[in-house]
Amino acid sequence: MPQLIINGIIMGSIIVLGSIGLTLTYGILNFANFAHGDIMAAGAYLCLFFLGLNVPFVVAVILSMCITAGLGILIDWCIYRKLREKTSVVLLIASIGAALFLRNVVQLIFGPQLVYYSSEIQMAKKLPFGIRIKPDEIFIIAASFLLIIAVHLFLKRSRIGKAMRALSDNMQLAGVIGIETEKIIFWTWGLGCALAAAGGIFLGLEVQLRPMMGWDVLLPIFAAVILGGIGSPYGAMAGGMIIGISQEVSTAFINPAYKSVVSFMILILVLLIKPSGIFGKKERLA
């Protein structure tokens, strides 16, 4: 069981990184960005590209995060920005288009096969309580933890971070008091997609890289966002951990092939019992 909890924390970290960006853009722009998973995959493959150039891993991660942030901003600028006046369904469908586009570009460049960042075999370290953990996994947990702390400080302390939370609460009021909303939206995409890239890279590190990887992880991420309450980054952090841990712990009782059922179950339960989520106040639209 302790081993499953550790596995859950690893998956949870990845889900949290993916869901912070999704919840912020969902809360502010009021649409479910289905391309968010594929943004994660794009980040993961960018990292593979940099590793191919013999860039050190940490540098490759940082470079991929920056470029993916730019990619998110570019997608918003080219596609979503023009559709903001339309209903959220139009944006949602546009995001599915963006998702398919990203996935196929990845597949075109890197091929459909499974890829690993490194072919060397890592020895798991033995810890008390029969826990085994690979160095990569320690890195994932530590790096995610640092990123989450950084996001927390950014959202709580910085002017732009506070404005992001304000926009997520009440976009109209933000405009009325003089916040340049488009500028904050720009930064939100950058932050969200940079974190998504980190999540994607860590997912690739823990499992492997496939063009479909982002699409597959989208369900637990959405479950985390809705569980935490749409628009709440702290909700996404809590939700992501809960989803990650409960998925892994469930494998003690059910066939691991069905573990994504757990996300579905939690998603359905939340929607039935407390649709606004743990930290959410907003009514969900559509």
């Binding site: 002017r159 506070k162 304000a166 609460d169 009440n170 009021l173 933000a174 003089g178 916040i179």
Partner: peptide, 26 residues
């Protein structure tokens, strides 16, 4: 010139201090 709307005129998930910070955003 400032305008205070009738409803939805605060940021509920921000603290009082943070709301005032937002008032001073510009």
């Amino acid at each position: 010139m400032c305008y205070v709307p009738q409803d939805n005129n605060i940021f509920p998930s921000l603290t009082i201090k943070e709301n005032l910070d937002m008032g001073a955003f510009v």
